[in-house]
Design a protein around this nucleic acid. Structure first.
Length: 265
DNA sequence: ATCGGTACCTGCACGC
DNA sequence: TGCGTGCAGGTACCGA
């Protein structure tokens, strides 16, 4: 489900929580706590006021009054829902004042919930925000890497927030083959890729993200950027630009979709 | 230090 | 109906 545009949309949809106080926190599936003790976690949250909700890469950072953060990563199938009944895959239930309830659902349990007293240590190694990185920084970083460009775009230490959908879509827009070696992308192609990444992310945020199977924001609304995908999961369909059938290759064990004619190596 | 491969989990679509 | 296979928005960890 969640890459930068989806996480941004979810974070925005959590705005109604700002100013609310957490009354109780219950945990069921413990895997998403990654070994943390559920009682300790609940005690860290109980009685705290939510002072802000922001996105950092693909993470959601819920700031708590008096310091400290609830750090959330949605993994592949995580959902935050304001209200609604708890289901089979509900792993956390937070009750808040004025009757609000926040559920964390995650069927595959690749997501993460943690409490952090300080700005999270794990954030320090992440790369820049793709919507903030300058073309000069982007160029310099590309030059140092010998890996395939698709794998690099997925690497959160390079840029924080891109995932499989938007990496494929950005490469298509820039006319770059997913197997191209990063350091061999030079000149105009670098600026084209830099601009394509920003453009596809901005458009996707404006569309509320891509709802591939069951992604919804915290208020249950679907995104509609899936209707604007040009290559992602369009294997065999004609390229919107040249009509060639879209192909699929594995790069770093992830499906990569591209047009063999518009994206030559 | 970097890189690619594998593991982690559940659900779904598909062919038989 | 069921069974096996492959695939899915993610990251951590391992060894080369």
């Amino acid at each position: 489900m969640p890459e930068l545009p989806e996480v941004e949309t979810v974070a925005r949809s959590l705005a109604p929580l700002i100013g609310r106080r957490i009354l109780t926190a219950q945990f069921r599936g413990l895997r998403v706590l990654r070994g943390a003790d559920p009682e300790t976690m609940a005690a860290c949250l109980r009685g705290r006021r939510i002072t802000g909700v922001e996105r950092y890469g693909k993470f959601i950072l819920v700031a708590l009054g008096g310091g400290g953060y609830l750090v959330i990563h949605l993994g592949m199938t995580g959902r935050l829902l304001l209200g609604g009944p708890a289901g089979k895959h509900t792993h956390a239930i937070l009750t808040l004042d004025r009757g609000a309830v926040l559920l964390y659902d995650d069927s595959r349990q690749f997501g993460l919930l943690e409490y952090s007293r300080e700005f999270p240590e794990r954030f320090k190694k992440l790369g820049p925000e793709p919507l903030e990185v300058t073309v000069e920084e982007f160029r310099a970083a590309l030059r140092r890497r010998k890996t395939r460009i698709k794998a690099l775009l997925l690497n959160q230490d390079f840029l924080r927030g891109l995932g499989n959908i938007y990496a494929d879509e950005a490469l298509f827009r820039a006319g770059i083959h997913p197997l191209e070696i990063a350091s061999r992308i030079r000149g105009d192609r670098v600026s084209r890729l830099h601009a394509a990444v920003a453009a596809v992310l901005r458009e996707a945020i404006a569309a509320g993200g891509s709802s591939i199977s069951d992604y919804v924001d915290a208020q249950g609304r679907k995104g509609f950027f899936q209707f604007s995908h040009r290559v992602y999961q369009r294997t065999g369909e004609p390229c919107v630009r040249c009509g060639s059938p879209i192909r699929r290759v594995l790069v770093a064990q992830r499906s990569s979709h591209f047009c063999p004619r518009c994206q030559k190596r």
